[in-house]
């Protein structure tokens, strides 16, 4: 069994925290993993992406081939569209629907959302609003992970919960609680679709 995930967003939105949680869960479960990131200049408010590969078999390449992404998790709708053509025919997109506009030539927001909505099976949710409503405003990325969790069959929801608890352990009980709540919220929403 294998799952190739691409994570995308804007520098500073927290896609690497999502990758860290999935990575921790994979390590505990004995699932092979490779995760390529780009650091340095591209982190400064530019587009960022990371390839995360999970498999029960050995993994060679750190990068996913074009057309090989099973699951695209994005913190921003236009950044989800950017990698649309990397998906397998039945690949899934799970994304935040809230545009992050920090460039003067950001395309028409309604056109971005319309193009996204036209993709079959896309899960597009305003996770920031959801996070504020649930009073976990800093855990929107864990809501996104919860939304994606049913599409990561290689790892159980419990493994991901344990990983959240271990990754946020040094930040204290309250932060662990908030992130777990956010994750569960996303998971519930996703399974109710």
């Amino acid at each position: 069994m294998k799952l190739d995930i691409k994570l995308s967003g804007v520098g500073g939105q927290g896609i690497l925290s999502i990758a860290t949680v999935i990575g921790q869960a994979a390590l505990t479960d004995g699932i092979n993993l490779k995760q390529a990131e780009v650091h340095g200049m591209s982190q400064r408010g530019g587009d960022v992406q990371s390839d995360l590969r999970l498999s029960t078999e050995p993994i060679y390449s750190d990068l996913i081939a074009k057309g090989g992404v099973d699951l695209l998790i994005s913190m921003e709708p236009m950044e989800a569209l950017r990698y649309r053509n990397w998906l397998t025919p039945d690949g899934v997109i799970v994304t935040s629907s809230k545009p992050f506009v920090n460039i003067p030539n950001y395309p028409d927001e309604s056109a971005v959302l319309a193009e996204l909505a036209a993709i079959p099976g896309v899960i597009s949710v305003d996770i920031e609003q959801m996070a504020r409503d649930a009073e976990v405003p800093r855990s929107a990325n864990m809501i996104l992970l919860g939304l994606a969790a049913p599409h990561i069959p290689i790892l159980s929801a419990d493994s991901l919960r344990e990983a959240i608890a271990s990754i946020f352990a040094r930040k204290g009980e309250a932060i662990i609680e908030a992130n777990l709540r956010a994750f569960n919220l996303g998971l519930q929403y996703s399974t109710s679709l």
């Binding site: 400064r44 408010g45 074009k66 236009m78 569209l81 950017r82 649309r84 053509n85 395309p107």
Partner: peptide, 20 residues
Amino acid sequence: EAKTSFAPAEHIAPRPPQFC
């Protein structure tokens, strides 16, 4: 051959890095 199934999306713009 590449296995690409989809054309690139239409409504995207480059997002270069910038000052904080």
